[in-house]
């Protein structure tokens, strides 16, 4: 599957480039742009990032594989992230994790067959005072209870 940036995204990349004195420094924001357009980072997408920025492919690959928010495999339409770190754990984070696992029938980093859901057990998301929490794609849901989790997952269509 070939990958080309859309015209609109090429303009975004140009704007991003201006923030930094080197092309390499723009690699993180440009990876985000590619991931948003393509859903995940295929080899072709990474090659295209390298060619657009004029950096080595290995630079792109090394960054993509270092950070947890870049995905080299397609994730679900709803990427559900449950925090089980200490503050969440103290307030029932693992119960929420088990509940979500059971409800979606998925485990850590698995994607449902219809590609609707993917699940990730994440490290601290910075919501410790509002624990337990989960995030769906970019949105945080805090102060969770069992009922709230049901409601949230049911609302994802």
């Amino acid at each position: 599957m070939s990958f080309k940036f859309t015209e609109e995204n090429l303009k975004k990349i140009e704007a991003v480039r201006e923030k930094y004195p080197t092309a390499l420094a723009a690699v993180m924001p440009v990876i985000y742009i590619a991931q948003e357009q393509n859903g995940y980072l295929s080899n072709e997408a990474m090659e295209e990032i390298a060619s657009v920025l004029g950096v080595d492919k290995v630079n792109v690959l090394s960054v993509v594989t270092f950070y947890t928010m870049y995905h080299t495999k397609p994730m679900g339409k709803y990427h559900v992230q449950v925090c089980t770190n200490v503050s969440c754990m103290l307030r029932g984070g693992y119960q929420i994790w088990d509940q979500v696992k059971g409800k979606l029938g998925l485990d850590h980093m698995q994607v449902s067959e219809d590609s609707k859901f993917s699940l990730e057990e994440v490290e601290c998301m910075g919501a410790c005072g509002y624990a337990p929490m989960l995030a769906v794609n970019e949105d945080y849901f805090e102060n969770l209870t069992k009922e709230k989790v049901e409601e949230i997952l049911d609302s994802l269509k």
Binding site: K19, Y20, T22, L24, A25, A26, V27, M28, P29, I31, Y32, V55, N59, S62, V63, F66, Y67, T68, M69, Y70, E123, C124
Partner: peptide, 25 residues
Amino acid sequence: FIHKGAGAYICGEESSLMNSIEGLR
């Protein structure tokens, strides 16, 4: 300018934060 991280605790360490801005691991 705002630089968005990508999920790495270590980038809170000042020198890895700089590497991250430079587009490195």
